[in-house]
Simulated assay, not measured.
Amino acid sequence: MLNGRDPRIDFFRGLALIFIFWDHVPHNPLGQITLRNIGFSDAAEVFVFLAGYAAVLAYGKVLQRDGYLIACVKILRRTWVLYVVHIFLLAMLMGIVFFANSQVETRDLVEEMGLTHFITNPQQALTDELLLRFKPNLMDPLPLYIVLLAGLALVLPLLLRNTLAVVGVSMAVYLAAPGMGWNLANFSDGVWYFNPVTWQFLFVLGGAAALYGQQARPAQTRPLRRQPLFLAAAAYSLAAGIITLSWRWPEIHDTWMPASLNNLLYPISKTDLSPVRLLHFLALAYVTAKLLPGSGWTQNWLAQQTGRMGRYSLEVFCLGVLLAPLADMINAMAGDAFAMQVFTALVGVAIMALLGAWLDFNKRLTQPMRAVAT
């Protein structure tokens, strides 16, 4: 039987949301300390993996308790909510970007945000929006999650019954997709920036990890320095970090990087979730899980605020999408001053944390009312 939520999952989802917000604000100094600067993967992998983890925990419990039909209905209902949120979020984002563009004279924010399609062909853009084919910058993760969650309605009972078989099929599709050109169509004959045919593997791995974490296993008594898998994962994470850091100095990178390794690594595709990206995330996640086996550290104040954001990840993600162009506008109007860039980055996170706190307070406020009503 699946158990309740893990506070560590909420914390890392919240941390991923902070990193996504910082990464989406151009020239943001705090964007230099996000995950993408210490390895091949970034916050997107964290978000998708933990989305699969949390979804399987939540809906797997419903399936075991109430049966497949109820679980399927709840998954599809949540998918519909995400779809409606996507439509309204895009409308709000366009309004904010158009306003921001009117305030900034030195840049074309509409073009930078990928909204030119709406300006040149609004009727087709609205149709593409409804079909999830029109996805301006910042909007890509939500349509991906919509498709992955909808697919969970079919995969969940199989995943619970035979996890390894589902992971094997998912991996086969992941490996075949780039060579076969499998992806969903975008507007103007393009394809999705996050290819759901490949990113589904990470989502499935998250679900498999949730099921694996529920199994009782003997405690590992050997120290970490004597665990080969941990040492290999740590070594790969460190090597990826060094290579990523060397990208800041191309002349140094080109000098010491062997040609054979260069040909093996590049290009590192985010669209198709390149294997080196996937392995880096899995290695980093494994090292983190080994170094932080318990959840006691999540009880400090800062971790609780971050975890609360992760608990309401949809709402906080949407707020971060809307705050990013506003922060960019304020920074541009201030001449991209370093102090202002740091200020807007921190204020944005504070606003996201306040939303999480409000939603948590509102939930606790309404729970007694529901109990009385029943």
Rank of each mutant, 00 (worst) to 15 (best):
R5M: 11
R5T: 11
R5P: 14
D6A: 06
D10R: 01
R13I: 03
F21H: 01
V25T: 00
P26C: 04
N28F: 04
P29Y: 02
R36K: 12
I38N: 09
S41I: 02
D42Q: 04
A43D: 03
E45M: 06
F47N: 03
A51T: 15
A54T: 08
A54C: 01
A54L: 00
A55T: 10
G60A: 05
K61A: 15
G67K: 01
G67Y: 01
A71Y: 10
L82R: 00
H86E: 14
I87V: 09
L89K: 03
L89W: 06
M92A: 15
M94G: 14
Q103F: 05
V104T: 00
E105L: 12
E105V: 09
R107W: 01
L109F: 03
E111K: 15
M113N: 13
G114T: 02
L115E: 06
T116A: 13
Q124W: 02
L131T: 11
F134G: 03
K135A: 13
K135D: 08
L142D: 05
P143R: 02
L144Q: 04
I146Q: 03
V147Q: 01
V155R: 04
L156W: 05
L158N: 08
L159I: 12
R161C: 07
V167P: 15
V167D: 11
G168T: 14
G168D: 06
V169Y: 08
A172Y: 07
P178E: 07
M180P: 08
G181M: 04
L184D: 02
F187T: 12
S188G: 07
G190T: 10
P196E: 00
W199N: 15
L205P: 15
L205F: 05
L205C: 14
G206N: 09
A209G: 02
A210G: 13
L211K: 01
G213C: 05
Q214R: 12
R217N: 12
P223N: 08
L224W: 07
R226E: 06
Q227G: 10
A232I: 12
Y236I: 13
G241M: 01
I242G: 00
I243D: 00
T244W: 03
W249C: 12
I252W: 12
P258W: 06
A259M: 11
A259V: 14
N262R: 12
I268V: 15
K270T: 14
D272I: 01
V276P: 09
L279V: 13
L279P: 09
L279H: 07
H280W: 04
H280Y: 02
F281L: 04
L282C: 13
Y286K: 13
Y286H: 14
A289L: 10
L291F: 01
L292A: 07
G294M: 05
S295W: 04
Q299I: 06
W301N: 13
Q304V: 07
R308E: 11
V316C: 09
V316L: 02
I330M: 03
A332H: 02
A332G: 04
A332L: 07
G335L: 01
F338L: 15
M340G: 05
M340C: 14
L346D: 05
M352L: 03
A353V: 13
L354K: 07
L355D: 00
L359K: 08
D360H: 11
N362Q: 11
Q367E: 09
P368R: 00
P368E: 00
A371R: 14
